[in-house]
Design a protein around this nucleic acid. Structure first.
Length: 246
DNA sequence: CCTCCCCCCTGCGCGC
DNA sequence: TGCGCGCAGGGGGGAG
């Protein structure tokens, strides 16, 4: 394997290559947005951040700018980690990954049975923060990024600016269903390519065609025709239909 | 504990 | 065509 750029979200330690070299991959998993590559002796944690990608290539494949890490496999292929913005990260860790500081405090997976109306009801009580910010908080539920937060709130007909603690029981139940449905549909479509997201074979995702509000500022709502609104919450763009969402 | 705000970094599209 | 500005799929960390 080889490293061209150590300055990712966290600097790769000097021992990174030597610890990873020769390891045998047992299985591949995921927790929140961290990929877990379990080996015979340690786990590779990968986060793609905003602009990161992993491509599976032949070792002689053309090098692109920002190909920071290359891992060569026994199969004769290699995996390249590319990340222009370097918000992504890699760690090679020992022991149970769930106990690692980055994973230990993560909330339930949104598609799991643990994330249900009862859970979200209890988790929102007494919270004054806007519901959009709360569903993007990994201490409450993981995996809901900026696109899907807006899209789930549209499907649940809830304003992103509502105080979380003031949602009714029925609204909380709608939101749980909407989050699960929007994520499942996006996964089925291969994700949402806005600019540079690609799958391991370099192909884009097609969920962008199914977005109701994200990046549709000023355009007509597909349901009611009212202009879609845009605002900034927590330094991130939010989009919603002020007529459909209350 | 909660809430708010900052930052890490490069690339791209826009207005002038 | 060139330049400056604002904004972009995330999320850790610290101040108050």
């Amino acid at each position: 394997m080889s490293v061209n750029e150590r300055r990712l979200r966290w600097r790769l330690p000097a021992a990174f290559e030597s610890e990873l070299t020769g390891r045998r991959v047992h299985s591949v998993g995921r927790r929140a947005k961290y990929l877990l590559v379990r080996t015979d002796q340690g786990t590779l944690l990968v986060h793609l951040g905003m602009s990161g990608s992993l491509r599976v290539l032949k070792p002689d494949a053309l090098r692109l700018p920002h190909d920071h890490v290359e891992i060569v496999l026994d199969s004769g292929r290699c995996i390249r980690f590319n990340d222009p913005r370097r918000f992504g990260s890699m760690h090679f860790i020992q022991g149970d990954p769930e106990t690692h500081a980055l994973l230990r405090h993560l909330a339930p997976e949104p598609l799991s049975a643990a994330f249900d109306a009862n859970y979200l009801w209890a988790a929102t009580r007494g919270r004054r923060v806007a519901i959009k910010l709360l569903i993007m908080n990994a201490a409450l539920v993981v995996g809901v990024g900026n696109i899907y937060a807006s899209e789930a709130l549209f499907r649940a007909r809830l304003s992103p600016r509502r105080a979380a603690g003031r949602l009714t029981r029925a609204e909380v139940a709608r939101l749980v269903v909407a989050i699960k449905r929007v994520l499942a549909a996006a996964i089925k479509a291969g994700g949402t390519t806005l600019r540079d997201y690609v799958g391991t074979d370099g192909s884009p995702g097609y969920f962008r065609q199914k977005l109701f509000v994200y990046e549709r500022d000023g355009a007509a709502c597909f349901v009611c025709g009212a202009p879609v609104r845009h605002a900034v919450q927590g330094q991130r763009s939010t989009y919603w239909c002020p007529s459909c969402q209350r």
